[in-house]
Design a binder for these strands. Structure first.
Lengths: 212, 212
DNA sequence: CTGAAAGCTGACCATACGGTCAGGATGCAA
DNA sequence: TTGCATCCTGACCGTATGGTCAGCTTTCAG
């Protein structure tokens, strides 16, 4: 990678290698699942000897945990959209945009996250019972208020959230299916825009929050 | 299992053992993924010695293939709802009901299917390019006709289908998350009903197909 | 310049897994 | 009853994988 063999700073080395490993791990875990992934594959993809992986991450479990926590953080960041909003149109639109962008930019991370949850969240159970639950309860409260204020129809907030998660996440997790049905090509910029617009229109109309 | 050691018919034996193996395999593949699943675990769960598995299914791949094809068939059966319908309200309602029932009754199968697609459909690529594509194109055509006939708003049929798939499948694949957010309890009959109603209401309203 | 700490790695190990096989048990048709 | 095809299984094997380690190189503070 580095053309000149300029001496690297310790900190720099650590940062770069960890980043490379995490990126490779994310991809391999996404493609093969935890059980199917091998440290050797991750090492090859990261361009490092396998033993070096164990220098940075003691075990496969530890590496996996780091990958999952990373994507969970990104996932939570999309939450901010909700808070700053004054009504369902703003809030839900922004949230859909944010989550669709995650599906597009971090499909591997999304898959790892989906896999983790599908397998019973062995690593993230704590987070789900604390952070995720708090986040969800907060958002449920916001939606409930919007309903009270007549800004949208009385829809069960939880099922609405599930719908948002499901619909947006689908474009990452089932991306391969979507590509296949798209003639084997990945979605173009325009198609991504159309996807977002369709989702927003259907859901916002569906909850009676369309802006005139 | 059999209390009396009544002699079993050959056919019967075969059928029962294959069924037991497939059921166990579905569960183990769902919980651990293909790579994480072991023939030993499947054998234990099926109550058979490992070697007996290989008598019925030569390889792990072959067993996996059978499991995946099984769920794909169930998945396709839900299609009929669409065909018999006279309009979006009937058709989409029935489809959502059917797919939600699959998520509820076959959560393991749904997870295996999701896993298969997430990992690039190594086994089902053929089916996706033939059967699934045909099915989808047919349904797209039906929806397009509904739009032409003014029975619903002009929504992109493909993205609508993705939304239906995503939303319903979510209750199986992310069932663990939903349970966690439900206080660790699985959804009750009433909650499943509410889920269905919410989804149907939001989507049907969202596409402008609400009946009066 | 020097020594210690950090970074690196080829070779190695124990284990677990998918798969095999020889040979025994069981049903069933004739 | 007999013979044979099907069914079953404990013991075994080769391989791949996660992980270890001794010893090397590189950075860098003092």
């Amino acid at each position: 990678m580095a053309e000149t063999t300029r001496p690297m700073r310790r900190q720099e080395i650590r940062r770069e290698n960890e980043k490379a490993i995490l990126l490779a791990a994310e991809k391999v875990f996404a493609e093969a699942g935890f059980g199917g992934a091998t440290m050797q594959l991750i090492a090859d993809l990261a361009g490092l000897p396998k033993a070096n992986l164990h220098y940075y991450f003691a075990t496969k479990e530890e590496l996996y945990r780091s990958v999952v926590q990373n994507i969970f953080e990104i996932w939570l960041q999309a939450a901010n959209c909700f808070d700053a909003a004054r009504g369902p149109v703003d809030g839900i639109s922004a949230y859909i945009d944010a989550k669709m962008e995650i599906s597009r930019r971090h499909p591997d991370g999304s898959k790892v996250w989906a896999s983790e949850v599908m397998h019973g969240a062995p690593v993230l159970q704590d987070y789900m019972e604390s952070t995720l639950r708090e986040w969800t309860d907060g958002r449920v409260e916001i939606i409930r208020r919007w309903i009270e204020e007549g800004k949208m129809d009385p829809v069960d907030p939880r099922h609405l959230l599930y719908m948002l998660w499901a619909t947006t996440q689908h474009y990452a997790d089932f991306g391969h299916q979507i590509e296949t049905l798209n003639g084997g090509k990945s979605l173009s910029d325009r198609q991504w825009r159309e996807a977002k617009e369709n989702i927003k229109r259907v859901i916002l109309t569906g909850i009676g929050a369309q802006p005139a």
